[in-house]
Every structure is written in C-alpha cells, then in structure tokens.
Design a protein around this nucleic acid. Structure first.
Length: 458
DNA sequence: GCTGATGATTGAGG
DNA sequence: CCTCAATCATCAGC
C-alpha cells in the first residue's frame, strides 16, 4: 500500500508538472488559474487513486460492484444512448460480412493432401502414390522395401498433421469460446450485437485457418520432398532379366519392319517379362532409336534372333505344310491362320500361292519390301548358323535357301520370283519404319496359339 | 575409375 | 496420347 501511494504521488506529480508545483519552486502558469488547477489536480488524483485501488479489490468485490452497476437505475438509459451513438458512428456491423470465397490456395493444398492420403479417410498411408511410383519402377519385389519405407514415412507425416490439426482446432475452439463469453459478458455493459460476436468468431476462425494453412503447406512440402526422394529412388534402375530382354528382343526382331507393339501386345509382353506396359513402351522406344541410329551394331544381334526365330518358323512351316499334305486340297484346313487379317487359308494351293506372292512381292498385303522381319526370319531356315553376312544383302541366296527348305518340306519347287529389292530392316528412306502390315504378323515365326501378335495398329 | 549398355525422363511434334 | 530424340543416371564389365 505504501508503494502504491508512492506511485500515486509520482503520477500525480508528473501529471501536474508544468502547471503548478507544490512548494513554489515550479514555473508560474502563464495566466494564473491557481484555484481551478488545484481542483482538477485533486480530481485526477482521485480517479487515479480509484483505478489503482481496483487491483486491490477481491473478485467478489468486483463482481458485486459490477452487479451494482448493472442494476443502476440509470443503466438502461445509458445503454440505449450508447447504442444510439454506436448506430450513428457506424461502428455497428455493416450489413452481413462479405462471404469470402474459398481460397484457391487452400483448396489446392486440401486436394493435394487428400490425393496423397494425408487428409481424408485412412487408406493405407496414401499408398496410391507409392503404388503408382512402384509400378513405374518396375521391380515387383525389389522396391517393396522402399515402398513400405515410403508408406511408413507418409503415415508419420499423416499422424503429425492430424495431431497438429487437432491441436489447432482445440485451441481455436477454446479461444472462440473464451472470446464469446467475454463479449457476451461485455454486451451487458456496452452495446455488442450477436452479429458482432459472430463476426468476431469469424475473424478468429480466419486467423486460425491461416495458421492451419501454414500447417497444410508445410505438410505438403514434406510430402513432396518424400515423394521426390521416393521417385528419385526409382531412377535407381535395375536391368531387366535376361529372359525378359530375350523376349523383347525376339519380338522386336521378328517384327522388325514395324516394331510397334499394340496395346495388347505390350500387355502380353509386359506379363511375360514381369515388367510394366510403360516399361515395354520405354524399351521399344529405346530399342527403335538405338537400332536406327546404329543398325550395323545391332546386325549380329538381329541375325542371332533371326536365326532363333527362323528355327521356330521352319518348324511352323513344316508342320503347316505337312498338315496340308495330309489333308485333301478341297477339304477345309484349319492349320494355317492369318490372325491379324482374319484371313484363313483353306487349302494347300492357297498356301502355295501366298508363299509365291510373298516372295515375288506381287500380292498387295504381303509385299516383301515391307517385310524385313519375314526376311530375317527366313535367313537361317536351313539350319545353318548364319553369321557375318549383312542382313538383306544376299537376297537371292536367302530366297534360294527358303526355296530349298520349302521344296524339302512341302515338295514345293515352283519358280519363285526374281531378284526383288528388299529392305533389310523395314526402315524406309526417311529413316522411319514402313507403315504397311508386316508379314511377321501374318506368319510370325514366334506366332503361335496364345503368343503375342499385333503390330497392325501402327 | 573408365566406358559402353541400358532403363527412365523430358520436351517437342504430330 | 504416342513416338522420337536427346539426355540423364545407373549398371556392369573391364
């Protein structure tokens, strides 16, 4: 209490300094209002004293005083005057607050968090993104560790996000309730409309949602970082298995004139190679480019696969012709089918015609100039290892070989066409592949029941 | 560590 | 959306 008095005194002294100072040492006021100044000084001193003593009041005392004030007979009148003034000064709510449209930034963040599985219902820690990335990375089992790592980290982020969000929401609610109570309480002594309270709540919510936005933003950033790290790991490629590469190469070289597998073909290749369709597409994309860039380099490989497939082809042809021999020329024969064309040869005669046409290049669909793959397939029909020779150079010898094989297997020795200009690999003058249907799709050496077949779609 | 091979990515173009 | 072409990043053999 002494301390308070001292402060009081000090305050009083300060507030009056410059007007008149007790003790006569101060400056004289310019116009000398001694009497009134003293009165004012006294009033201010009283008010200050009252203010300072408020802190000494107990809560009960304060409540009692407040109650007394509320029950004061002049209170309603004063209150209405205050309301009137407020109305006039435009401090009241200016109509309904403009409904601010949903923040696009917030919407983006919300969408992203939802897509990543951070917000919204639990769905395995946002495995969708991880699964997609994992699928693209190819290795079915290899990245399962990375996958689970990704998932666990995402779950962690999700947990932190939800905990923080809950905290914010709780704090927001607490604060809102507190402010509302305060305003309701104050509304008894000063004019506060419910709308104003509502507005205040809105302001609080906006403030908190801006904090929430920051949380969402940082969560998004964390997810993006995690994702990019995970996707970076995807670049840690693994070479395809030998078997897979072989399957792909077989398809490529047996469809060399038009190495564009259809969607179904890609799917089947993907299945066979245990890789994804996009990996098949990648592989063919890379292969086409690299083959085209340096055909010479791939010659050996081409010959190798040609020889490989040719053996199969020889067997297929032999089997087909054998079949035709055992069947009557007039009876339907189901052993020889053109799958892509839905073209079916019903007799040995038709088959012979077809073969003739193929090698004379006289029949529309089966022009040899477009048939690099067929050509390659036939290179080693006699079973000899075909090495060193340029693909497509010894055309006549190839035809001779084929003729020999066919004559041996089917007794077919009719004159085959003369020298035709063959395209060794199906590449046209522009460096692009021919568009035309390729014989490989007609009697692809590898073609068999359930085998991949297509390449007409391109 | 160097180098070629190879799977993946990116941007342009149709 | 697909393909091409260039490029990157990693693998694998030496």
């Amino acid at each position: 209490m002494d301390e308070q008095a001292r402060i009081m005194q000090a305050l009083g002294g300060v507030s009056l300094a410059g007007h008149s100072v007790q003790g006569g040492m101060g400056l004289q006021p310019p116009h000398g209002h001694d009497g009134t100044d003293d009165g004012r000084k006294q009033d201010i001193g009283d008010i200050l004293h009252q203010i300072m003593t408020i802190t000494d009041q107990s809560l009960d005392e304060a409540q009692a005083k407040k109650h007394g004030l509320n029950c004061h007979r002049m209170k309603p009148a004063l209150f209405s005057v205050l309301c009137e003034i407020k109305e006039k000064t435009g401090l009241s709510i200016r109509g309904s607050q403009e409904e601010d449209p949903p923040d696009p930034q917030l919407m983006r963040l919300d969408n992203m968090l939802l897509a990543e599985g951070v917000s919204g219902p639990e769905k395995g820690g946002g495995s969708a993104a991880a699964a997609a990335a994992a699928a693209a990375s190819g290795g079915a089992s290899d990245n399962s560790i990375e996958h689970s790592d990704y998932r666990s980290k995402l779950t962690q982020i999700r947990q932190i996000y939800h905990t923080e969000l809950e905290k914010y929401e709780q704090a927001c609610n607490e604060f809102t309730t507190h402010v509302m109570n305060l305003l309701r309480e104050q509304s008894r002594t000063r004019p506060i409309s419910p709308k104003e309270i509502e507005r205040m709540v809105g302001i609080i919510h906006r403030k908190f949602s801006s904090i929430q936005m920051q949380l969402k933003q940082s969560t998004c950033e964390a997810v993006m970082i995690l994702r990019s790290r995970f996707l970076d790991a995807r670049r840690k490629r693994r070479n395809f298995s030998k078997q897979a590469t072989e399957i792909l190469n077989e398809y490529f070289y047996s469809h060399l004139s038009n190495p564009y597998p259809s969607e179904e073909a890609k799917e089947e290749l993907a299945k066979k190679c245990s890789i994804t369709v996009s990996q098949v597409s990648n592989w063919f994309g890379n292969k086409r480019i690299r083959y085209k860039k340096n055909i010479g380099k791939f010659q050996e490989e081409a010959n190798l696969y040609a020889a490989k497939t040719a053996v199969t082809a020889a067997h297929a042809v032999a089997a087909a012709v054998q079949n035709s021999q055992t069947n009557s020329p007039t009876t339907p024969n189901s052993g020889f089918q053109m799958k892509d064309e839905e073209f079916q040869l019903d007799s040995a005669e038709s088959k012979n015609t077809l073969l003739t046409n193929m090698f004379t290049g006289s029949s529309g669909s089966f022009n040899l100039p477009n048939s690099g793959d067929m050509f390659l397939s036939m290179q080693s029909l006699n079973g000899d290892s075909y090495q060193g020779a340029q693909v497509g150079v010894n055309v006549q010898s190839q035809v001779d070989t084929l003729r020999h094989v066919i004559s041996q297997t089917a007794g077919y020795s009719e004159a085959l066409g003369g020298n035709t200009m063959y395209s060794p690999n199906g590449l046209n003058a522009n460096g692009g592949w021919h568009d035309a249907m390729t014989p490989s799709s007609v009697i692809s050496p590898t073609e068999g029941p359930g085998s991949v077949h297509s390449d007409t779609s391109n």
